Simulated scan of single mutants.
Amino acid sequence: MPPTSQRDFMPHVTVACVIERDAQFLLVREWIDGRERLNQPAGHLEANETLAQAAVRETLEETGWHIELTGVVGVDLYTAPANGVTYVRTTFIGRALEEDANPQLDEGIIGPEWLTRDEIAARREQLRSPMVLDIIDQYLAGRRYPLEVAGQHG
Rank of each mutant, 00 (worst) to 15 (best):
V28W: 04
W31Q: 15
H44I: 10
A23G: 11
A101S: 07
E49I: 10
L140C: 07
F25Q: 03
I110E: 07
D118K: 14
G84C: 03
L77T: 10
G142R: 03
I32A: 07
L105Q: 03
T70C: 11
G111S: 01
R35V: 13
G142P: 06
D22S: 14
L45T: 02
D137A: 13
N48R: 15
L60C: 09
A23E: 14
P130E: 10
E98F: 09
R124N: 12
F25W: 11
Q53H: 01
G84L: 00
Q40T: 12
D76H: 07
F25I: 09
D118W: 09
L51C: 04
D118F: 09
D76G: 02
F92K: 01
L60Q: 04
G43I: 01
G142F: 08
A23S: 15
L133H: 01
L133P: 04
G94C: 04
G34K: 10
R89S: 13
E98Q: 14
R37H: 06
Y139T: 04
Q40E: 08
I135A: 03
R143C: 11
G71N: 08
Q138T: 00
Y78R: 05
E98I: 02
G94R: 01
L140W: 14
L127P: 03
N39E: 14
Q40P: 00
Q126M: 15
V75W: 07
Q104C: 11
I135P: 03
D118E: 14
L38S: 01
P81G: 05
E113V: 15
A82L: 13
V132K: 12
E99F: 00
Q104Y: 05
W65E: 05
L27F: 02
L69Y: 12
R144C: 01
A42I: 07
V28H: 06
D33Y: 08
P130N: 10
D100K: 08
L140K: 13
N48Q: 12
L97V: 03
L127N: 05
T86K: 00
E99R: 15
G84F: 06
A23T: 15
Q104K: 12
A101F: 07
H66K: 10
R143P: 01
P41W: 11
S129I: 01
N102Q: 12
W65H: 08
A80D: 13
G111L: 05
Q126I: 07
E49L: 05
Y87N: 10
P130M: 08
Q53F: 05
R123A: 04
L45S: 05
V85Y: 07
R95C: 09
A23F: 08
W31H: 11
L127R: 02
R29V: 06
S129Y: 03
E119N: 11
T63W: 04
V56N: 05
P41L: 08
A101R: 04
